[in-house]
Design a protein around this nucleic acid. Structure first.
Lengths: 232, 232
DNA sequence: TCAAAAGTGTTTCGGGTACACCCATGT
DNA sequence: ACATGGGTGTACCCGAAACACTTTTGA
C-alpha cells in the first residue's frame, strides 16, 4: 500500500524535482545549467530544479521551478526517473524526481529569478562542466532517453523552430542518434509519414534556398489514432 | 539544484515505494495484490509497498518491502514511474515511486509478514478487483511498460521457469503483446537469435512431447556487447 | 485409431539501404 | 564561373508475413 496508519511517524526525506532541458542549434545539442548561488556546491553548475510544494503535482513543480529560474517556454516535458541514493545530497536525505524537457528556440536568453540560481547558461552537450550532486548521471540518463525516444515519437520537432528545412531536421536526427543518415532515404522516409506540411516559404543562405516545412500536429494525431506508429 | 540551503524548512511529503509484481501461468498474466489491514482503504486490495527508510535506496526499499510482505524471489525489478498528485492519499501528501517486477514461478505461495498486509494473492490481469489509492493507474502504466519492453529486452524469460518449451514462450508473448503470433515464424525468429540453449529434456503432456529450452544469459550478454539488439 | 500438441520450408512482398548527379542561388 | 547546399530515382537485399501438413505421444 502507499502508506501505513502512522504516516507522520516515518522519516520524511526532502523531495525535489530536477530538469534536464535540451536545446538544439547550430552548435548541436545543448543543455541548460544554472550556477548554484549557495552551499553545498556553491559556484558549481547544476540542473535547474527545486523543492516540491505541498499542494502541487510533480510536473507542476518542474514547470514552476523552470519558469522561476529561467523563464523558458517548454515545448515538451516528461518525467524521466527518480534518484534516491541515500548519500546523493550531503545535507541529508533528498529524493529527486528528474524530468527532461525540450525547447524550440535555444535563442531565448534565459532569465534568472530565485536566489538559488546565480546564473543560467546553455552548454553544448560535448562541453559540459562537472556538475553538482549526481546531476551528471541524470543528464546521462536523459540523453539516453532522448536518443531512444526520438525514433518512436515525433518529439524531434520540439527542438526545432516552427518552420524548418529537411536538412535541419536531418542534422537534428544525426546529432541525437549519433550516426549519419542518408539524405535521400531520410527525406523519402520523413515525407512518406505525411505529417509534414510544406510551407510556401524558402530559407535563403549560401547555396540554393531550402523549402521550409511545418510539423502537422493534427495530421499526426489523426494518423496516430488510426494505429499509425511514427518510427524514423 | 537538488535542494536549497534551508532544506529542513520545506514541507516534506512522505515517500513510499509500490510494486507491480507480474507472474505468468496457465491462466495468463497475473498481478500480486495485498489486502490492506488498516485504514484508509481497509480491506481493499492494493499494491505491495511501504515507506522508504532514511538509509536505503529506492530499489532497496522496494525489494525489502516486497520481501517482508510476500517473501517472493524476484527475477526482475525496474523503476517504473513516480506518482505525486497532491490528493492521491487521503491522509496527506504521499509521493510514491512505483516499480514493476517479474517472478519466474507464480507457483510459490506468497507469505505474509507486516501488519499492513492482511493477505497476499495473485489476480489474473483480466480480473483485477478495484484498487486502493491510484493503484489501478499504476498497474496500467506497468502493463503498458511491460508490453513495450518485452519486445526489445529479453525480460520475457523472467516470467518463465528455468526450462520452458517454445510453445510456452510463444503463448507468453501472445498474452503480453495481446496479439497472435505465427508459430513457424516465431520459432524461426527466436532460434535465430541464438540466445536459447536446447536441453536434452522433454516435457510430456497431452500430445507430442516438447523440447525444453533454457535462456542462455551468457550468450545474450556476449551478443549484446557486440551491438546485437534483441527485438522480437 | 483418435485426439492433441509439436515440429518443420518455401514463397511473396515491402521496406531499408546504397549510391551520383543536376539545380538554384550568392559571391 | 564557381562554390555551396538543396533536391531527386533506381536497383538490390533481407527480413516479415502468409500458409498446411507430418510426427509423436497418451488415452
Amino acid at each position: 500500500m502507499s502508506a501505513g496508519q502512522h504516516a507522520y511517524e516515518w522519516p520524511r526525506p526532502a523531495v525535489t524535482v530536477d530538469c534536464v532541458v535540451f536545446g538544439f542549434g547550430a552548435a548541436g545539442l545543448s543543455v541548460l545549467l544554472i550556477q548554484r548561488g549557495e552551499a553545498p556546491f556553491e559556484g558549481s553548475w547544476a540542473l535547474p530544479g527545486g523543492f516540491v510544494r505541498e499542494d502541487e503535482g510533480l510536473d507542476e513543480a518542474a514547470r514552476r521551478e523552470l519558469g522561476e529560474e529561467t523563464g523558458l517556454t517548454l515545448s515538451f516535458l516528461e518525467q524521466l526517473y527518480s534518484f534516491g541514493a541515500p548519500q546523493r545530497d550531503p545535507r541529508g536525505r533528498v529524493i529527486t524526481v528528474a524530468f527532461y524537457a525540450l525547447v524550440q528556440e535555444l535563442a531565448q536568453p534565459p532569465l534568472l529569478a530565485t536566489g538559488d540560481a546565480a546564473e543560467a547558461q546553455w552548454f553544448q552537450e560535448t562541453e559540459l562542466p562537472s556538475l553538482a550532486f549526481d546531476h551528471a548521471e541524470i543528464v546521462s540518463v536523459a540523453r539516453t532517453r532522448l536518443k531512444g525516444k526520438v525514433r518512436w515519437q515525433p518529439i524531434g520537432f520540439d527542438l526545432l523552430p516552427e518552420h524548418f528545412t529537411l536538412s535541419e531536421l536531418q542534422r537534428l536526427y544525426e546529432v541525437v542518434l549519433e550516426r549519419e543518415l542518408d539524405k535521400r532515404n531520410f527525406r523519402r522516409k520523413v515525407l512518406s509519414l505525411e505529417i509534414l506540411e510544406e510551407t510556401d516559404e524558402l530559407q535563403r543562405g549560401t547555396g540554393r534556398p531550402a523549402r521550409l516545412y511545418r510539423f502537422d500536429k493534427a495530421a499526426y494525431a489523426r494518423a496516430e489514432a488510426e494505429g499509425f506508429v511514427f518510427e524514423l
